[in-house]
Design a protein around this nucleic acid. Structure first.
Lengths: 169, 169
DNA sequence: AGTGAAACGACCGTAGA
DNA sequence: TCTACGGTCGTTTCACT
């Protein structure tokens, strides 16, 4: 529902929480770090820990959410959701990459795709209930897309330390 | 801090929220879907939307968090955090995979590693401030690890539709 | 950007079905 | 596993710095 707010840099002498390069100030980093542990932690308790009033914490969090610096969301565990197979699919394209990318995005069992430089043109992370439906997905859905040359499957044997804390460690 | 609670399936005629296969019941799916939009949405407002009391929603969310079905966390945007380069590194190992995996996990700029079957033994997602520090990371940190045979870098040109909603679409 | 205070709303534990 | 309810705590708004 929320749109990224248009930021007119109000050059009126107030020190910004984010620099032009997009790095956060020390206070925001601490706030983000705490919210990465528990996204529902109250502003009051965060404020107590870092020595700021509840309102100050809340305004900072709101600004970071509005600016698209972070989001606070439920992240599900694929295993617990009944998806026992995950894989990365390396794809080489001999047609229109944008077209292929669009078609891939329409597939429900792909959670993200990456346009890359290297041996592959696209990497797509896929999940499936079991080996059977993983094969079905790759052979009947992905490989059928016009413009796909080859696919190569990297089945996940084990996923270590999935984290969501880019840049705040 | 929280441990996954041991589930003794109390076969006393109460319909469970999770089946043995780990899929959620319809109510929990709706709750998760709403929390994927806004992880801080109040239990009261969720309850109103799905026709359940605040306490019922709260108990269900608590159970899903305790069971490791989902987590509610802040997810940062690497770009906004000043990390303008992301890449997947494909790694082949000629030594001890566990040792290599452990060493990789200690590197701050790796957010997750995947043990795979296929051309590579390990896939690692890495991020860096710029090309310079990406090269430094791969050449000076990753390639120096004992037991690593070859590495292959897939630089992200564009990341499409990163989502965190496995299985609830 | 930040504080403090008052009114309101959400959350939590528990009792009862 | 649900609802109802009362006590406590968190959030919101606003005036002030």
């Amino acid at each position: 529902m929320k749109k990224k707010q248009s930021i007119v840099s109000s050059d009126q002498g107030n020190e910004s929480q984010t620099t032009h390069e997009g790095t956060l100030d020390a206070i925001n980093k601490r706030i983000v770090a705490l919210l990465q542990e528990d996204g529902r932690r109250s502003y009051v308790s965060i404020g107590k820990e870092i020595g700021l009033s509840e309102a100050a914490v809340r305004l900072r969090v709101q600004k970071m959410l509005d600016d698209g610096v972070m989001q606070i969301v439920a992240v599900t565990n694929p295993m617990e959701m009944g998806f026992r197979r995950q894989a990365m699919v390396g794809i080489t394209v001999d047609g229109d990459i944008e077209y292929v990318a669009q078609k891939l995005k329409d597939i429900r069992q792909i959670d993200y795709i990456i346009i890359t430089a290297g041996r592959f043109d696209i990497l797509a992370e896929v999940f499936a209930e079991d080996d059977e439906s993983m094969l079905e997905l790759v052979n009947r859905q992905i490989r059928k897309i016009d413009g796909i040359d080859r696919t190569e499957l990297f089945t996940y044997m084990r996923l270590e330390s999935q984290r969501y804390d880019w840049g705040v460690r």
